[in-house]
């Protein structure tokens, strides 16, 4: 009986060790070597770690990642919330809102990027065409660093706002109707209801959505890499993208592993800080 429990866990454990623990160990080992993409390696001590703290690209990629996170997160959360509030009302076309707001989240990133690349085109792109018709000038959506970051954020909002929308929608449906009915009897306006009842009761959802969004944004790669195109746009390169490029474009598996570890440490610190903060707040209640 004592042993049989282990056998239930064993299949998962084998995969877990093989494809999570072992790569973690390989990465740690590689980070102190000059390992290249073909596997030959020599011990170099802490040289990779020394190099990465001096590497301006590491810092700029971290910076871009931070910019992306702090600009996209509030917009995504807010848009998701607004969508949920709009779609939670009992109107016949409710299904349409759900489809419209959530469908983009179900698309693979490549499809999202293809569509938006098409929308951002100069001349025959839908957005620039609209701007021209309104008498405004065309915008080079992906041609300067600053605009490229804006375009990436816009695309990301369109793609992922549906996730927050769904979480908020679920939370809204759990708020008892009696609360609204009672406050309506007290003469509260819908706006007051929103401020005094809805938003406070959503506080746990806010926290969840914001934390998940921040953690996802810090790990951003797909849409930044794909929207940047062939040569890449150095002014928007994210840290995960730099890990990818160091390992596979510059063939430096050792160095890329070192950056991975430092980035992992950073994520772990952020997660721990969040954990401590929520734990502290929880105990106060």
């Amino acid at each position: 009986m004592k042993r049989s429990g282990f056998w239930f866990v064993a299949p998962f454990l084998v995969l877990y060790v093989a494809f999570l623990v072992v790569p973690m160990a390989i990465g740690l080992g590689a980070s102190v070597t000059d390992e290249g993409i073909t596997g030959h390696a020599a011990f170099v001590g802490a040289a990779n770690y020394g190099e990465l703290f001096q590497d301006p690209v590491v810092w700029s990629s971290l910076w871009h990642t931070l910019i992306f996170t702090v600009t996209s997160t509030p917009v995504i959360v807010l848009v998701g919330l607004v969508m949920a509030l709009l779609a939670d009302r009992a109107v016949p076309e409710r299904w349409l809102y759900r489809l419209a707001f959530f469908a983009p989240y179900l698309l693979p990133v490549s499809v999202v990027v293809l569509i938006w690349n098409w929308l951002y085109q100069p001349g025959f792109g839908l957005i620039n065409d609209l701007l021209t018709r309104l008498g405004l000038g065309e915008v080079g959506w992906l041609s300067t660093d600053g605009m490229a970051m804006t375009s990436i954020v816009i695309t990301t909002v369109w793609w992922t706002a549906g996730f927050g929308f769904l979480l908020y929608l679920a939370a809204l449906q759990e708020i008892p109707h009696q609360l609204y009915e009672a406050s309506a009897l007290d003469g509260a306006t819908p706006f007051q209801q929103l401020r005094r009842i809805t938003l406070p009761l959503l506080s746990r959802t806010h926290q969840l959505v914001i934390v998940l969004q921040i953690l996802a944004s810090l790990k951003v790669f797909d849409q930044v890499y794909l929207l940047s195109g062939q040569g890449g746009i150095p002014g928007v390169r994210s840290i995960v993208q730099y890990i990818y490029e160091s390992g596979f474009t510059r063939f430096r598996v050792g160095y890329a592993s070192a950056i991975s570890y430092v980035f992992f440490a950073l994520i772990a610190v952020i997660a721990l800080v969040h954990f401590r903060l929520t734990a502290a707040r929880g105990s106060k209640r």
Binding site: L20, V22, I26, G27, I243, F248, V253, S257, S260, F264
Partner: peptide, 12 residues
Amino acid sequence: PPQVLIVPLFAE
């Protein structure tokens, strides 16, 4: 995060 594993996982 799976992202930090891609390089060593590829090597593996």
